[in-house]
Design a protein around this nucleic acid. Sequence first.
DNA 1: ATATTAATGACTAGCGCTGTCATATCGATA
DNA 2: TATCGATATGACAGCGCTAGTCATTAATAT
Lengths: 338, 338
Amino acid sequence: MKVTINDVAKLAGVSIKTVSRVMNNEPSVRQDTVDKVMAAVKQLQYQPNAAARNLASSKSYSIGYVYDNPNAYYIIDMQNGLLEACRKHGYELLIHPTNAKSTNIVNEVLDLVERSRLAGLVLTPPFSEMPELAAELDKKGIDFVRIISGSTPSDKLKNCVLIDDFTAAFRITNHLLDQGHSKLAFLCGDEEHSSSGERLAGFKAALTKRGITLNDDYIIPGTYSFESGVQGAQTLLAMADKPSAIFACNDEIAAGALFCARLSHINIPAQLAIAGFENSPFSRQTWPPLTTANQPNSIIACQAAELLFKACKQTSANANFEQPVFVPELLVRESTRA
Amino acid sequence: MKVTINDVAKLAGVSIKTVSRVMNNEPSVRQDTVDKVMAAVKQLQYQPNAAARNLASSKSYSIGYVYDNPNAYYIIDMQNGLLEACRKHGYELLIHPTNAKSTNIVNEVLDLVERSRLAGLVLTPPFSEMPELAAELDKKGIDFVRIISGSTPSDKLKNCVLIDDFTAAFRITNHLLDQGHSKLAFLCGDEEHSSSGERLAGFKAALTKRGITLNDDYIIPGTYSFESGVQGAQTLLAMADKPSAIFACNDEIAAGALFCARLSHINIPAQLAIAGFENSPFSRQTWPPLTTANQPNSIIACQAAELLFKACKQTSANANFEQPVFVPELLVRESTRA
DNA sequence: ATATTAATGACTAGCGCTGTCATATCGATA
DNA sequence: TATCGATATGACAGCGCTAGTCATTAATAT
């Protein structure tokens, strides 16, 4: 019934110490010994007792995912990616949704790590973009990986997985320009999310490159929400000189803009092109379907977790982080097709 | 730095065993002793080490949430509700998405419980509707709570939280009838989800009560997906005698139907009324917004977890389960408003 | 064959808590 | 006040594993 390390040792004909060595990937175990042990493990379906392991080694085999994001699809994708990596490496995932704006969020996270004896943390925006959090975690020697908006690996972003929102936004904007639009508006997401800034920067860069003058009035601040999209579009459509295309910072905003356009009996895309970002499931389900950029969230999350596991294994001294960069890919759909 | 039970015992002037008793709410500890200990706990900010607890007691303070549902909003809501209850009771939540159709799902779940030493399980459809799973869990003495579609508490549903889809569907149908419709169609969800059957039953009951003859051709089998809604609506709209209202088994399906209606240039709700179910966030964001029924998922989940914790504490012998029933509430929006 | 290194095992000591069982304390009764 | 049953508390072992220390053996080099 309950298989312990002893049973494995007996079956493999080695000492429990050796089994322990194998289970923990310690060096200086001969390959055929490893094989013998692994065979026994498989035969007995041995699963080390996590509690005992944690207790004895005072570090756990679980990582935490701290998030505060209203987008369910995003979270689920992230979770699934993280879980995939966790399963592969025998870790457990502890999810910790919380309010990013709470005053002592740093302490809350620190508490979480201590209480649950977490081996590490995966942070997504806005947590991945809090310098004071990163600093504190570093100080305490807590391993973590951040998923963050950015295009260029750098020393400051040591333990980061980068999402190149800039380039993706640049491409979406180019697509809009290719459709013959020149009066482009931009609906921003939350200011404190750097993705919003990056996307806006990509948007501006594309205009500049084509020599198109940017109309500052066409840049509408907002948040990553449907309501914000409705409002933003309202503002734009009330202008004497309306834009002919809207680039929304994400699909929710774009869906809001679409909703507003429909209220105003404006034909999409004939009278107004709308593009989103993120490739949420519903971006295919709006009418017309939204042009957007696909962010492979679960793959990104999986990579982030892999990176974290690597980090956990090496001493911080010789830490040598890769910085994978993902460029969301342009998906052209009817909402912008001439 | 690290506070152990010893520190608390010393400060409170009692033995560690007594502290343990207090921490576990065991009876036969005098009130003033409890107070002394709790004061020490508070002063030292003591947090019991979960790993040690698990190891010593061979049962853990985590529960599992097993699910297989494509609906991200649903999952997130459930998770949040479960987490709320977990935090309150000092439990941890282990999420376990998996494929419900895999052949040996029962073993997989059993494995999960054993490997992670789970204290209990929360099951949502379709897992909550697998008699063989429930039987096996019962046999192994594993505590679990099911969230399930049903209206009447009964012995067979001992450890269940019920969602009264029947009544909710009955009310939605009544609303449709009140709008003057008499040619009502129904787009089914997955057959293996009993919610689909319950909702259909409620639909039929409402028609019967009003003495309206049911057109069997108007009942379209399908799955809980947008695509299914598109297809179902296509079938209905291709009929010589089209229905004037569609009741979709959930919002996704309704959104699909909406999409299809738009493709066919059919005006909603003037030419066709469409109602959904679930109150997904996007049901407010379609055009026009969808009439639906609100299922308070996170509250339901929280209740389920509470029930589970109760179950964990009592011996199965004197188990005395409540069976809370939730009736999703009708939300009338533009998609059905005359 | 011998020196040198790499693999492995035997043993021990915990990790921080809970379970068992023995002991101490208490209130009530005779 | 002595006695008893019930209640409250403590001493101690052990959960299953890791990690350290040496001692021992096997593999490789000289």
